[in-house]
Design a protein around this nucleic acid. Structure first.
Lengths: 197, 197
DNA sequence: GCAAATTAATGATTTATTCAAG
DNA sequence: CTTGAATAAATCATTAATTTGC
């Protein structure tokens, strides 16, 4: 691929420090122009592309969330265990105080013992979700386009792509027949079912 | 945004027909060049951008899968119900034949009645997954780059972006101070914590 | 010390979910 | 309700740490 390059980007220490600082400062989903700026800036410290910056934030955010989720779920698990223990203790007490002799079998449990194990997935996820979904809106003075400032991923790629996209305006020059369209496309429902294998 | 345009693309009938035909013919995740071709071609029938094509395939594939999953899970559910019924019947039979008089309470269920509802998510997903994950590799004669032909989403966007990305090569011209980097970036760990609001 | 073997991190893709226009 | 658009979660794949036997 890239000459003398490995297949994937690995950030230099400086790049990483800067990225982390930006993250700490609140950036989570950088807009197109932000990515552009960051990339340009970081390219001073080593080879880097826009997508690297994009992915870095994507992953960092996700793994932050994930870490938080795990912590919460572990906490919950502990709480549950303690509750269970408490429950058990209570039950023991009841048994000791109100049931003088075993009711039928000493190995028999009380029904409320096998309480359903709570669903961490759902609960914890929602909690951490709300805790983390604080969006950060850039106040970019140069953007006088009235589009949503919360620019995204795809917009970035595609918007920039469209700069040299001749297909944006309805092109009237005779389209040369392309590989993908071997037949006239007006009678589509006939047998142009060229099955690729 | 676009002059006299609505906020989102809506495909013309022709465009839709072609897209569906292409989908039927096996295309699921069109490569960059494919998207380019398709877009160019479809732009003859109305305004369209590359991302529209990309999203269309993305969504169509996903919703196909989803539909299939639902069908399968419904089937399974039915099967489960029937099994349950069968089970119930069996239990009834057992009760009738082996228990002459009610054991403790007529409303009491047998423990194996509340069997765990099976996890459709896991099972069905995997099934439909395998059924749908038939990738389609283009045999594009014009690509003599030896990169993987299974090109993707981001590659598309970002690759094209990099065409006019001056930051790709390590730039040595003095970077003008950007909004995002108000201070020198070498001493990062000091207080450049400009909190955005 | 130092590679081969394992494991942990993390960059890059793909899939699922959600939002919102029409 | 359908579906284009966007975001988040899950997954894959490669690189860096780390361990292990010599």
């Amino acid at each position: 691929m890239s000459p003398a390059g490995s297949s994937r980007w690995s950030p230099t220490t400086e790049q990483l420090m800067i990225l982390e600082e930006l993250y700490r400062s609140g950036i989570r989903t950088p807009s197109a122009s932000q990515i552009q700026q960051i990339t340009t800036h970081l390219s001073f410290y080593g080879r880097i592309e826009g997508k690297n910056v994009f992915y870095w934030f994507q992953n960092h955010k996700a793994r932050d969330r994930q870490k938080l989720r795990r912590k919460l779920s572990k906490q919950l698990q502990l709480q549950q265990q303690q509750l269970q223990l408490h429950h058990c203790q209570l039950n023991q007490d009841i048994t000791n105080h109100f049931v003088a002799y075993p009711p039928r079998s000493t190995t028999q449990d009380f029904p409320f013992f096998n309480s359903p194990s709570l669903l961490f997935q759902g609960g914890a996820a929602n909690t951490s979700e709300q805790a983390l979904n604080c969006k950060w809106n850039v106040h970019n003075p140069q953007s006088n386009l009235v589009e949503k400032e919360e620019m995204t991923f795809c917009n970035y790629g595609w918007t920039l792509m469209d700069v040299n996209d001749q297909a944006s305006s309805c092109c009237t020059r005779p389209l040369k027949t392309l590989d993908l369209f071997p037949l006239t496309t007006t009678r589509i429902n006939e047998d142009c079912t060229t099955q690729p294998k």
